[in-house]
């Protein structure tokens, strides 16, 4: 009986979550332009219910991290992620956010992948990904949301927490936002 209730709630919640993903306008570099192109006329992200780009993290469900994240930007990214209200999802758009991309190891200021600091749901490699690829990533995320259960999601978020290091003591900083 319990299971039936949980699955039915899951179904309704997931259905409504998946079809109205509101992204945050978080564009740092090249991928941001392709994200703009995805919104523009030829690709029209509105077909998948994600055209409502929000300037404030409080109103957004989806963080499309479009572009390289550097050490200076990292605290900003973590803070924005923490400010978003649950349920929240992350797409790592572009090679830089997936694993450092072209800058991995040769650059002194680029983080090798945002999964070191925030939990990531969908990885979208390529440098930069085409608008169609971003649409595909959003579709994949919708499929993922439609299948997930509340309990699994909770476990996932407990396992992957946001992480920042204090450079002076080399200890993890506990975020208090």
């Amino acid at each position: 009986m319990n299971n039936i209730i949980v699955t039915s709630i899951d179904y309704i919640l997931n259905w409504s979550r998946a079809n109205s993903l509101w992204p945050l306008t978080f564009a740092t570099s090249c991928c941001g332009i392709e994200m703009m192109q995805t919104v523009a006329s030829d690709n029209d992200i509105a077909r998948f219910g994600s055209e409502v780009f929000r300037g404030s993290p409080r109103q957004a469900d989806l963080l499309i991290c479009a572009g390289t994240i550097t050490y200076k930007m990292a605290p900003v990214l973590v803070r924005l992620y923490e400010q978003m209200a649950e349920p929240k999802y992350v797409i790592a758009m572009g090679a830089c956010t997936c694993g450092g991309g072209m800058f991995a190891d040769t650059s002194y200021s680029v983080i090798n992948g945002i999964d070191k600091i925030i939990p990531v749901d969908i990885y979208l490699p390529m440098c930069p990904p085409r608008p169609e690829a971003l649409l595909d990533a959003i579709r994949k995320l919708q499929d993922k949301i439609k299948k997930e259960s509340i309990i699994d999601r909770k476990k996932f978020l407990e396992k992957h927490k946001t992480k920042l290091f204090d450079t002076n003591s080399n200890k993890e900083v506990i975020n208090e936002y």
Binding site: A74, N112, G113, D115, I117, P119, H160, F165, N170
Partner: peptide, 8 residues
């Protein structure tokens, strides 16, 4: 140290 973390 950030890059060494196994958060993934």
């Amino acid at each position: 140290a950030w890059n060494d973390s196994d958060n993934v």
